[in-house]
């Protein structure tokens, strides 16, 4: 059992506050992704959990044990580094077995575990090589195998796929997810790639400016973003926003259209995902500005009431720049945000 609890963790670098009062609980065997743009504090948080960085205040608990005063090796974790950190002077075998040797396990046990994890990562044939003779993808596999060989309670991954090319990244994504699910470890995975986050995570913590903005399942983060930042960060293209004027008793006017919405007195923002729009008889009048055929669908950037608005439409449609489309949102997909707090309003 390795539940991870982060309690009131904050981190200052001099006068710069990298993390503000982070509270997060990660369940045993959960795959948690820390997602955010660079500089949002996600790597710092991971490094604090690993013990490579010390929190200015707050506590870290792993498996019911407070660990923030312990050195990394005593926390029951292992880690995959962004640049792999595969030791160049050791063979692949010795790299994978590094942690086991440090634990002074007998040779046959080291051999058994190294061979098993190398098998899991499909690198059995590389065990005698040095890292200089490996490709980026193979080095990545060695780094993961080294972390798995420790049979840790928790595995921490810091942008492990960011140095791979797109195709290899997609392949490794699926493979990693499978291997980690099988190993039954709790995983924390840091990335700035939302596709990676969406496809791998049980839960995503979206981070922004040293805070966790939302921690929820991928589909919830996508469908019900807790804040404007999440709405505009997740999804490609991001959500569309239009100002909404209160028309009284839960009725709202958005770019000339009427919607039911929250019973709020002040003006809000209405948001919709580009793929939740369709051509209809009645709806927003949208003048197409840029049309991008993407094969599977058509991405149309248009102008609605002076605001930029994107719609993902059927690729068979014949739309040219300058055309005026009538776009209607799918029922129940519109979301509301308070422009002052930027938080979602139900």
């Amino acid at each position: 059992m390795a539940e991870i609890q982060i309690k009131n963790v904050a981190k200052n670098f001099g006068s710069y506050q990298a993390l503000h009062d982070i509270n997060l609980t990660i369940a045993d065997q959960e795959f948690m992704v820390l997602l955010g743009a660079s500089g949002c504090g996600k790597s710092t948080l991971l490094r604090i959990i690993a013990g490579l960085e010390t929190a200015t205040t707050g506590e870290v608990w792993i498996g019911g044990r407070r660990v923030d005063h312990l050195s990394p090796k005593d926390r029951g974790i292992s880690m995959v580094f962004q640049n792999y950190a595969v030791f160049p002077h050791l063979t692949v075998f010795e790299n994978i077995g590094f942690g086991l040797r440090m634990q002074k396990l007998p040779d046959d046990e080291v051999k058994r575990r190294v061979e098993r994890t190398a098998g899991l990562m499909h690198i059995e044939q590389l065990l005698k090589r040095y890292s200089g003779e490996l490709s980026g993808g193979q080095r990545q596999r060695v780094a993961v195998a080294r972390a798995l060989a420790m049979e840790p309670d928790v595995i921490l991954m810091d942008e492990p796929l960011s140095n791979l090319d797109a195709l290899l990244r997609m392949e490794m994504r699926a493979e990693l997810k499978g291997v980690l699910a099988e190993s039954k470890t709790t995983a924390i995975y840091v990335t700035h790639d939302q596709v990676e986050a969406m496809s791998m995570a049980d839960r995503i913590s979206v981070m922004h400016q040293g805070k966790i903005v939302q921690a929820a399942s991928p589909i919830e983060v996508y469908r019900d973003p807790a804040a404007e930042f999440v709405a505009s960060f997740i999804g490609n293209p991001p959500m569309n926003f239009l100002p909404a004027k209160a028309a009284g008793s839960g009725r709202w006017t958005v770019a000339g259209q009427n919607f039911d919405g929250p019973a709020s007195g002040k003006d809000l923002k209405w948001a919709i995902r580009p793929e939740d729009l369709g051509i209809a008889d009645a709806g927003f009048g949208a003048r197409a500005k840029v049309v991008e055929p993407l094969g599977a669908h058509l991405l149309v950037t248009c102008d609605v009431d002076g605001h930029q608005f994107r719609a993902v439409l059927d690729s068979e449609l014949n739309v040219k720049p300058g055309d005026v489309l009538t776009l209607a949102p799918q029922e129940g997909r519109g979301r509301w945000f308070d422009p002052e707090t930027t938080l979602a309003v139900a």
Binding site: G51, P72, I77, M79, F81, Q82, F98, G99, Q103
Partner: peptide, 12 residues
Amino acid sequence: KEYYEAADVFGA
């Protein structure tokens, strides 16, 4: 520096 961090994590 990453090599030392890795060594730290893996118990050296």
